[in-house]
C-alpha cells in the first residue's frame, strides 16, 4: 500500500485524519471492500487489530458499527457515498435514532467522480442524511480540511456523515489552518454577494469570485464544510452585509447545501438565493471536468447565478 498521497483529494485527507486520531484506542475502522478507495487502508496497514473487514455488505457494516459504538468504541465506517445509501435505513434506525457516535464516510461523492458513470455518482447523499435527526453532515473541500475535520469527529458525541471526493482539486487550506465542525470558513470577503459552497465547488467559487471582481462585483466566499448543523449565525451576518446568496455544490439542488440555505433564508429573511448544483438529473460517464461543464457546475454557472441573485436584490 502506498503512503497517503500528497494531493488535494478530500478522501486522502480522511485517510490521514484517521491516522492522526489513531492514538485514541477507542477509534476503530470498518471497511466494506473499498478501503483502498476511501483511504481507510492506511489505518488498516498500521492498526490491523482495530480494523474490521465486513466484506461487500454495507447494511451489516452499519449495525456492526452501532454495536461497537454502544460498547465504547468510536467507529469510522466507510464505503462509496452511493453505497452508504443502500444502508440508509440502517443508518437512520440503527445509528442515528439511538444517537450512537458512528462516523460514516462516503467517498467518491458527486458527479466529479467521473468516468464510473451515474451508478457511482451520488448526488443525493447530503440531502438524505441531512433529514435525519442527530446527524452531523460534513463535506470538506480538500485534503487538508478533510484531515482536520475527520480528526475533530472523535469529540463529536453523536453520529456523522462525511462525504469526500475522489479527485484531486487545488488545496485551499494550509497545514494548521483553523476550521471547526459547525462553523463556515470565510475564504474571501466581499460586500455584494456571498457564495456559499462545499466540496469541490469551493475552489470553483473562488475562481468565480475573482472573475466577478473584475466586473466590479465583490464576493464573500464561504467553505460551508458543515451542511448540518448549518452555521446560521454566519448566514444571518452575510444576509445583512451582502444581501444576496449563491450556493454551489456538486449535489442535487434539491435538499443539499442550497436546500439547507433556502430553508433558513425563506423563513427568516427576504434575501435572494440562486443555486448552482445538479438540476434533478443523473450523470453519465465522462471526465470530471466534462461532466462539471455539462451540469453547469463551473465558473460560468456561478457567475450567471451571481448576476441573477444581485439583480433580485431588494
Amino acid at each position: 500500500m502506498s503512503a497517503p498521497s500528497s494531493g488535494g483529494a478530500s478522501r486522502d485527507g480522511y485517510g490521514k485524519g484517521l491516522l492522526r486520531i489513531a492514538q485514541d484506542p477507542r477509534v476503530v475502522v470498518l471497511e466494506a471492500d473499498l478501503g483502498k478507495s476511501t483511504k481507510s487502508c492506511h489505518f488498516r496497514d498500521e492498526y490491523p487489530d482495530r480494523t474490521v473487514s465486513l466484506g461487500i455488505a454495507e447494511q451489516n457494516m452499519m449495525l456492526v458499527a452501532a454495536g461497537m459504538a454502544s460498547s465504547g468504541k468510536i467507529p469510522f465506517a466507510s464505503t462509496f457515498a452511493i453505497f452508504t445509501e443502500r444502508a440508509f435505513e440502517q443508518v437512520r434506525n440503527g445509528i442515528a435514532r439511538p444517537g450512537l457516535p458512528v462516523h460514516i464516510c462516503g467517498s467518491h461523492g458527486g458527479i466529479h467522480t467521473g468516468t464510473d458513470g451515474s451508478s457511482a455518482q451520488s448526488i443525493e447523499d447530503l440531502a438524505i442524511y441531512r433529514t435525519i435527526p442527530n446527524m452531523t453532515v460534513i463535506h470538506p473541500c480538500d485534503d487538508i480540511s478533510a484531515e482536520e475535520l475527520t480528526s475533530q469527529l472523535v469529540d463529536l458525541n453523536g453520529p456523522s456523515y462525511m462525504r469526500t471526493a475522489r479527485n484531486k482539486v487545488p488545496r485551499l487550506y494550509e497545514d494548521g489552518s483553523k476550521l471547526r465542525i459547525g462553523s463556515g470558513s470565510v475564504l474571501r470577503e466581499g460586500g455584494d454577494l456571498a457564495i456559499i459552497s462545499c466540496g469541490v465547488m469551493v475552489g470553483v467559487a473562488i475562481s468565480a469570485a475573482e472573475t466577478l471582481s473584475s466586473e466590479g462585483i465583490s464576493c464573500t466566499v464561504v467553505d460551508m464544510h458543515t451542511i448540518k448543523p448549518l452555521d446560521v449565525e454566519l448566514i444571518a451576518k452575510l444576509s445583512d452585509s451582502c444581501g444576496a446568496f449563491v450556493t454551489a455544490e456538486d449535489h442535487s439542488v434539491i435538499g443539499g447545501l442550497g436546500g439547507a440555505l433556502s430553508e433558513w433564508l425563506s423563513t427568516n429573511t427576504s434575501t435572494p438565493l440562486e443555486m448552482v448544483g445538479v438540476r434533478d438529473r443523473f450523470g453519465q460517464s465522462g471526465a470530471s471536468s466534462e461532466l462539471m461543464e455539462l451540469m453547469g457546475l463551473n465558473e460560468v454557472g456561478i457567475c450567471e447565478a451571481a448576476r441573477r441573485a444581485i439583480s433580485r436584490k431588494l
Partner: peptide
Amino acid sequence: NWTKGVDFSAGSLGMGLSFGLGCAIAAKM
C-alpha cells in the same frame, strides 16, 4: 434510550444480529 436494561433499539427487523456482532467484536478487542 428509553428503557433501562434494554441494549438495542429495534423495530426494524434484520438488524440485531449485526449489532450483536459489533458488541461481540468490541468485547473481544
